[in-house]
């Protein structure tokens, strides 16, 4: 009979880089990113899937890295905040910088990922408010985040509904 695993080696692609790690199969994707791979941009605000600071894209879809176990990320493609900028800042990053979308910055990585996803897939939610409802921010009151995303949408030539 098969033995249950308490250690497994997995291969995943993070921001385009393929990485092999050996971890407990229930280790959180969050800890894999932060501790095994050293990408500390993804933050832990609550550890229970509520605050959204650990939002990353897995296989193109937003997930919460604190609720995603290692055994389910083998072979996955993950994008974190560190993967948004290429040669220059992504327009969403640039807009957050200019429009005051980031204050203390701790929710920013997750917020940017959700905003990035929304701009790529505006059909995923009724509006921006719904798309970002899983990313809680305690500094901005969200108003400047809305204006940041709208500015980025303009620059990307995307139309999004009014909030």
């Amino acid at each position: 009979m098969t033995e249950p695993l308490d250690r497994m080696t997995l291969t995943l692609t993070v921001n385009g880089r393929t990485i092999k790690v050996a971890v407990h199969p229930m280790a959180r994707l969050l800890d894999i990113l932060r501790e095994e791979i050293g990408l500390t941009g993804t933050k832990e605000g609550c550890g229970e899937g509520e605050c959204g600071a650990c939002t990353v894209l897995m296989n193109g879809v937003p997930v919460l890295a604190c609720l995603t176990p290692a055994c389910q990320v083998d072979g996955a493609e993950v994008v974190t905040v560190e993967g948004l900028a290429k040669e220059t800042l992504h327009p969403i990053q640039q807009a957050f910088l200019e429009e005051g979308g980031a204050q203390c910055g701790i929710c920013t990585p997750g917020m940017l990922i959700s905003a990035f996803y929304y701009l790529e897939h505006p059909e995923c939610a009724e509006n921006l408010r719904e798309a970002l409802a899983g990313n809680q921010c305690r500094c901005t009151g969200y108003t400047k985040i809305f204006s940041s995303v709208r500015k980025a949408a303009e620059r990307l030539g995307k139309t999004i509904p009014e909030v």
Binding site: P62, V63, L64, A133, G134
Partner: peptide, 12 residues
């Protein structure tokens, strides 16, 4: 489905 958590919960 729309009101279960948010997008990042609904995906999982």
């Amino acid at each position: 489905a729309r009101e279960v958590g948010v997008l990042a919960i609904q995906s999982r």
